[in-house]
Amino acid sequence: MNRRVFAWSLRQAGRTLLVLFVAAALFHFLVLLAASAFLGEASVRLFGNPPRVFEAFLGGTANLLEPEGWMATALTHPLAVALMVGAGNAVALGAVAAEVERGSIDFVLGRPVGRRPYLLAKGAAAAVAVAVAELGGLVGVLVARLTVERMGEIGLGTILGSFALSFLLYAALAMVTLLVSAGESLRSRAVALAVGVVVGWYFANFVALLIDGTSWLRFASPFHYFRPSEVIAGRWAATDAPVLAALGGAALAAAVWRFSRRDLTR
C-alpha cells in the first residue's frame, strides 16, 4: 500500500467525510429520539404488530416499542444505508474511474507508485471513510444513550458489536464499488453500476424477507449478514462477520487483479 496515496485520498475526501460524520451522528440520534416517542398504549396498538412489508423494508425487524428495535431501525434505515454506502463510495468511486476520466491518474501512475500499492491505498482509504461515517453513527447512538429515555438499557458492548458488523458490511460494499471503479473509465458509469449493485442486493434481501418462497435469496445479499436486531439480542450468527469480511477481501483482490491488467485509456 502506498501511504502517501492513502493519506492524500483521505485529504481529498476530507470535507465530504466530515459532512457524512455529522449527518450520521445526527441521523442516528434523531431516529432514536423520534422512536422513543413510540411508548404507551396507543403505540402498542399501532406498532405492536407491524406489517411484514414494513419489517422487510427495515431489514427484518420493526419493533418500535423497545430501545433494541429503535437502534436496529436506525442501523437498517435506508437513509443510514445511503450514508454509509456514500462514505465508502466517496473514495472508492474516485479511485480509478473518476481519475481515468479526468486524466489525473496519469500523473500518479507516471510516478514509481505501482498499480497494486495504489489500489490497496484507495481500498484502505475507502474503509477508513466508512469507519468515519460509522463513528458518526456511533457518536449519535452514544449521545442518545445518555439523553434518550430507556436507551441506557442497551449495553455498550452490544452497541459496539452492532457498529462493528455494520462496518464490515459497508466496507465490503465499498470494496465492491472499488472493483467496479477499477474496471471503468467513466465516473457516471461506475456510479450507476455501483449503486445498481447495492440497490439490487438490498432489494433481494427485501424480497426474501417478504415472500416465503424466495427466502433462499437472502443468502445472496450481503444485507442478510447484517441483522442488528439479532446482534442486540445476542443471537447473531458466528458466520456473519466472516462472510462479510470474505466478501470485502474477495472484492478487493478482484479489484487489484482487474486494475493490474487493464489499459488506462479514456
Binding site: 502506498n2 502517501r4 496515496v5 492524500w8 481529498q12 470535507r15 479526468r102 486524466g103 489525473s104 496519469d106 500523473f107 500518479v108 507516471g110 510516478r111 514509481p112 507508485v113
Partner: peptide
C-alpha cells in the same frame, strides 16, 4: 522520469500547491 500527459485535468478540490506537493511526495 518526469511525465506530462496529453489532455489532463488535476484534482479540482486541491490547490495548485497541493497538487505539486502531492505529486512531489510520490517521487523518490
Amino acid at each position: 522520469v518526469g511525465y506530462l500527459p496529453d489532455e489532463f485535468a488535476l484534482w479540482p478540490s486541491l490547490t495548485g500547491r497541493e497538487c505539486l506537493d502531492y505529486l512531489g511526495s510520490l517521487h523518490p
